[in-house]
Write a protein that binds this DNA or RNA. Sequence first.
RNA 1: GGGCGGUUAGCUCAGUUGGUAGAGCACCUGCUUUACACGCAGGGGGCCGGCAGUUCGAGUCUGUCACCGCCCACCA
Length: 851
Amino acid sequence: MTPPAGRYDPQEAEPRWMARWLDSGVLTADPASGKPPYAIAIPPPNVTGVLHMGHALNNTIQDALIRWRRMAGDETLWICGTDHAGIATQVMVEKQLASEGTDRHALGREAFVERVWEWRENYGGQIIGQLQRLGCTLDYSRERFTMDERYAAAVQRVFVDLHDKGHIYRDRYMVNWDPGLRSAISDLEVEDREVTDELVSIAYPLIDGDGELVVSTVRPETMLGDTAAAVSPKDERYADLVGRRCRLPLVGRELPIVADDYVDPEFGTGALKVTPSHDPNDFEIARRHDLPAVDVIGEDGRMTADAGERYAGLTPAEASARVVADLDEQGLLRGREPYTHSVPFSHRSGARVEPLRSLQWFCDMDALAAPAITAVEDGSVRFVPANWGNVYLRWMNEIRPWCVSRQLWWGHRLPVWYRGDEIHVGLEAPEGEGWEQDPDVLDTWFSSALWPFATLGWPQETPELATFYPTNVLSTARDIIFLWVARMVMMGIEYMGEPPFSEVNIHSVVQAPDGRRMSKSLGTGIDPLELIEEHGADALRFGLLHMSSTQDVRFNAGSVQQGRALVTKLWNASRLVTERGGRVQAQAPTPELLADRWIVSRVASFVEEANALVADFKLSAFADGLYHLVFDDYCDWYLELLKGGQASVDVAAYVLEQLLALVHPVMPFMTEEVWAAIPGSAGMMLTHPPARAPGPRDQHAELAVARLQEGVRALRGFRTDRQLPPRTPLVVGGPGLAELPDEATAVDAFTPDGSTDGAGGAVVGLSYGQLHVRVEGADPGEDRAAERSRIGSEVERARAELARAEGKLANEKFVDRAPADVVESEREKVRRYTEELSALEQELSDMDGAS
RNA sequence: GGGCGGUUAGCUCAGUUGGUAGAGCACCUGCUUUACACGCAGGGGGCCGGCAGUUCGAGUCUGUCACCGCCCACCA
């Protein structure tokens, strides 16, 4: 390797290093290595997916954690794979078919499924390659797919087992029907949107005697399926109607009038029409009052024959218009007004969800949830930040049955067999003729729930499973806590006896710069791959970690540029060090010079800090700390001292190596490139031991350099105030000089004044004493006015500080009740500023005397 | 309707247990100092959303209001 020279080119270097990591075999976990295991299961991206900013952030976090632990000596496994994503994938292929002028029904189920597999072969899983572009060190040798044969077998087995245990059952129940998809969807796949409908009031004539009951509805067409009317039992207006009957207009059916607590007397007329088949509330009312149900909207999203000849076949919207018109004609319309309310829509197809009764398979969650609740309560699963644990618990405590069957073709087909009225749940069809398998498939999330153990070979007792289950960390944004995280915890406990991970890191959602959601359809997406092209993956990784926290953040291009600056900075720093003969020594050098002891101490303290930050997933603070350690400590001060001959190049090289090790989990590519270029280096940063410092922190060195920095800054400030060019040679004396390390002359141009009475000229106040400063060779009498005003402002500042401290101390309550050390520090300030003031005033009077 | 989170420098965000507000970018002033202009040095800029409390002391704790965002929820 040649020493670093010229510019660093991420586009050239990054793919080269990814190939080397892959070739090294290091990414393939060895369950038998005997090293402490550390595993993360990637949230499997959809097989149809392309890398978006959320993936980029989440996987950068996971990769940084994996690399951190790998360097620390753990046997790391980052489980790799993709999700078959039932709906998304089926829709994708259906679109393709549509462009060819055909559809899945024309193709038939078997050919369609084959077509999806073909699609996956040709176009699927490109995101895996994109993760490599990001530098992710997944175990690609163990890539899994949720439709793999072995994985599918695990899914079937769980379904059968949950059925045998009585948790999975079949029921005709109210489901969220997605007419676009023509499938049931789960509660979690429904989103509410505000919609303005029309609230229509309809008169239902009473059967015996005069009068009518007026009900209000936003879905007039569903009245065709009414089987009752309901009022509140507390409503005196209707007390005498309860138990009587009314006639359903247009249909003619006689309806009982029931009293039910669900009805709010304050709303509308206080009377409700009851449509058990098409409203979840009415469904419940019907159960309580043992009412029949009439399905008037079918799974095709159109009115059924039971809706009556006049309406059958219409869409609900068409039927609604016709119903209203017909009622109007019969004089039964009692009111129409616009009404805004929230309406369920399918998250997947965007269609308005049609609640209807349907024969589906459900999983009762109560028994599965109980131990999963305990796991979070007792800390076996720890959410970071902790607040998300409460969100999880609130949902889990009110968990409802999960509709797991989907009327799709792409997915895990239910292991359920029918013959006439017979139902068999099992891995295979029972003996005998005529059994047919249920055409439905399972909710994609049902299979995802098994991810942390099905990927490791369960139900076989594989070495991978034995070594790497449970995994350590699950990292995700908050949007899939219920859909996925909670279900993994439940299934993990049910089938492995313990939760699938001990920590859940919930990270930021990265928003568009304008605060909107990043989305392709809104046009607000920013393509991480383009950023990689432009700035390199290292810069993007740093930027994402640095800008993110536990809070949602707007995408901040500046952070990526900061990352890029850090790449360049380290690259150039390594050039300086190697140009000066820096090389990797067999043994760690012993720091002796002040600057060496200081930088080593700084590294030691940051290593300590970094361990705590990474353990708490505070990767933003970690990235920020890296930036400042490299820029401020190493480059701005330490390397300047090195250039001034005040540091050892061996230590400089040694510390550079430690910096590379610290930075590597965040910026893996550049750190490899730099490391390889340092003479004497061996091996890859990928498996380099973690950063360390040869020795403990050195308080004396840290204090001395802090004084050096303060002194040098004061001298630079002095020049600025006097409008002198930088590095104007100065002569410095005064009481503070003894505390100002000699090394300061290496980073700034000044001459310590050997005379005992100081250097004359200006007085510069420091926390450790005054410095007397004058411009070398200049007449002390010059610039007297400027100097006077400068001293004047210093006096002003010192007086203000003094007044503040004295004010506090004058407050008896403060002196009484504040902690002793706080009071003492105020007293110290009084002493210091008093001293400084008298020196400044002396200075002023000396000037007066001289003039 | 419930719950959660946010409101800090022009912008994007940090602020550990309450003890005189920080970073990056942007801005201003100087620097073509042979590692680096993706740089160096210096600087300006904030009643920490409003109000009221607790406290010797509040960006930090409590209450309340306002606005923004998210989640959950069966009022036609």
